[in-house]
Design a protein around this nucleic acid. Structure first.
Length: 491
RNA sequence: CGGGGUGUAGCGCAGUCCGGUUAGCGCACCUGUUUUGGGAACAGGGGGUCGCAGGUUCGAAUCCUGCCACCCCGACCA
């Protein structure tokens, strides 16, 4: 057994790391804080991308690409923005290397110092709004609905594969609108798209809500979020959508002429999801045998493994016919046939379980005699024998069942890990016990929020949208409160 | 940036305290034979600047000095 995975119950972090590495999703690179996303991991990310990209386009957005490097001065134009990001920016100071005179290798050429340093984008609002200034003149240029798929860099102190790396991949939408309401509508529309994707594709139920001021994106008037719950009872912010007000329009002086001839600053949004979603996928569904990939995101949905050997050697023609038969019935399903005769079937079973392939079809000599196949579900680890004649229908139905069942399981988990509390003792007890989401009354002040974080490490994940209004008192300060907010320990 | 730990074959490790054959083990890899319905067995084989740089010594993976890298735990964050 060369590929043992640390059990979730022993060490959740180690378990997570083991899955990511051993399922072939990603590994640490030689660059501190940066990972290599391996082909299998990237294939899943590509599926996420193509689904999201289609939705962005269906809702009127187009893709573009803006520079990786941003003049340092741009960042400082929006006060809150610079405050939020300055501490984690990588800075380019020179544009040339040269050989050291003592032959010790290559060094930075001190004569090639940049007049203005460039930062590697931690996010692109500034370079984009600097550009939008030139693109927007009239109300007829609006709305401007642009997305970019890009990598960004934030110099993190501590990193974890997919969940927090210095460089990460994401999409960032940046839109400009003529009215405040239109920008808010855009922000909320995207949030719904995100939630839909997370629930129906990744299979993770999410709470939609708005962030408190202290958790808000640097430069936003309002930040909307989708919060998922992982198997260890910690929350993961899976996507955010920001209403930027006129902050960037004012900082970069982006005005448009109205129909009536007036001159006004435009209203903005930005929104993004990142490769962090890969982490959510892992932590929501996987088990001690490895990764579990929801069928809709699986690069390979079905793997066919023949049971090779002496008995099978006499029936290779029949095997080929059976494989062709199965593949013929699975048009539109992603199928891999693994006829590698240097590895044994048992080895392959374990390997594909590690990689989370939703369905495995095994065909042995007995199956060929009986006109059957054995189909194993990755999620439930159950095996059953089915007739080969309608394997297409069977597979399609099972894939759908798996997709639904993963979501349902995650939903059940969330239900059993969501607690309403009315006292601070209860609050601490739940967080130190089973964890999960905690709904509690909060007096609405940043001081209380900070004090609770200090005392429990839990933060306000969001104030849920359409939140039930209910009179109560803050669990911490005892001051009056009109609603419960969502607390959790978070990634 | 603080605390802890680790650097020896692709991966995981032993050896380091107490210096001394040709640096060893498991997995992986290559060749062959027998196998093949849940990670095959046997036989043979290839693969090493012992993190880097100095120093001590007849002799250094091992002792000394300096440096570097990475991982884990905290503070910051999607």
């Amino acid at each position: 057994m060369s590929k043992e995975i640390t059990s979730r119950s022993v060490d959740f972090s180690k378990w997570y790391n083991d899955i990511v590495v051993k399922a072939g999703l990603a590994e640490h690179s030689s660059v501190r804080g940066c990972m290599v996303i391996k082909p299998y991991g990237f294939a899943i990310w590509e599926k996420m991308k193509s689904i999201l990209d289609a939705r962005f386009k269906a809702t009127g957005h187009v893709n573009a690409a803006f520079p990786l490097l941003i003049p340092k001065s741009f960042l400082s134009k929006e006060a809150a923005h610079v405050e939020g990001f300055a501490k984690e920016c990588a800075v380019v100071t020179h544009y040339r290397l040269k050989n050291a005179e003592d032959g010790s290798g290559v060094i930075v050429d001190p004569d090639a110092k940049l007049e203005e340093e460039l930062i590697i984008r931690p996010t692109s609002e500034t370079i984009i709004w600097n550009t939008y200034k030139n693109w927007i003149r009239s109300y007829r240029d609006l709305p401007l609905l642009i997305n970019q798929w890009a990598n960004v860099m934030r110099w993190e102190m501590r990193t974890r594969l997919f969940l927090r790396t210095s460089e990460f991949f994401w999409q960032e939408g940046h839109t400009a609108h003529a009215t405040k309401q239109e920008a808010i509508d855009e922000t909320e529309m995207i949030l719904k798209e995100y939630a839909n994707f997370m629930e129906n594709y990744i299979g993770v139920p999410v709470i939609k809500g708005v962030k408190t001021e202290s958790e808000r994106f640097a430069g936003a008037d309002n930040t909307y979020t989708t919060e998922g719950l992982m198997q260890d009872g910690k929350a993961l912010q899976m996507g955010t959508s920001h209403f930027l007000g006129q902050n960037f329009a004012k900082a970069f002086d982006v005005k448009f002429q109205t129909k009536e001839g007036g001159l006004e600053h435009v209203w903005a949004t930005s929104w993004g999801v990142s490769t962090r979603l890969m982490g959510a996928l892992v932590m929501a569904h996987s088990d001690d045998k490895g990764l579990v990939v929801p069928p809709k995101l699986a690069p390979i949905q079905v793997v066919i493994v023949p049971i090779l050997g002496k008995k099978m050697n006499a029936k290779l023609d029949l095997l080929q016919a059976a494989v062709d038969n199965i593949k013929g019935q699975l048009d539109g399903v992603s199928v891999k046939y693994d006829g590698d005769d240097t590895k044994r079937a048992g080895f392959k079973f374990a390997e594909y379980e590690m990689k989370g392939i939703p369905l495995r079809i095994a065909i042995g000599p007995r199956d060929l005699d009986n006109g059957t196949v054995e189909i194993a579900r990755r999620d439930t680890q159950t095996k059953d024998t089915y007739s080969i004649d309608n394997v297409g229908d069977t597979v399609r139905q099972l894939l759908e069942e798996i997709q639904n069942s993963l979501y349902q399981k995650a939903l059940d988990f969330r239900k059993s890990h969501t607690t309403k509390v009315d006292t601070f003792d209860e609050f601490k007890e739940v967080l130190n016990g089973k964890g999960g989401f905690v709904y509690a009354h909060w007096d609405g002040t940043a001081e209380t929020e900070a004090a609770i974080k200090e005392a429990t490490k839990a933060t306000i994940r969001c104030i849920p949208l359409d939140n039930e209004q209910e009179e109560g008192v803050c669990v911490f300060s005892g001051k009056p409160s009109k609603q419960r907010v969502l607390f959790a320990k978070a990634y």
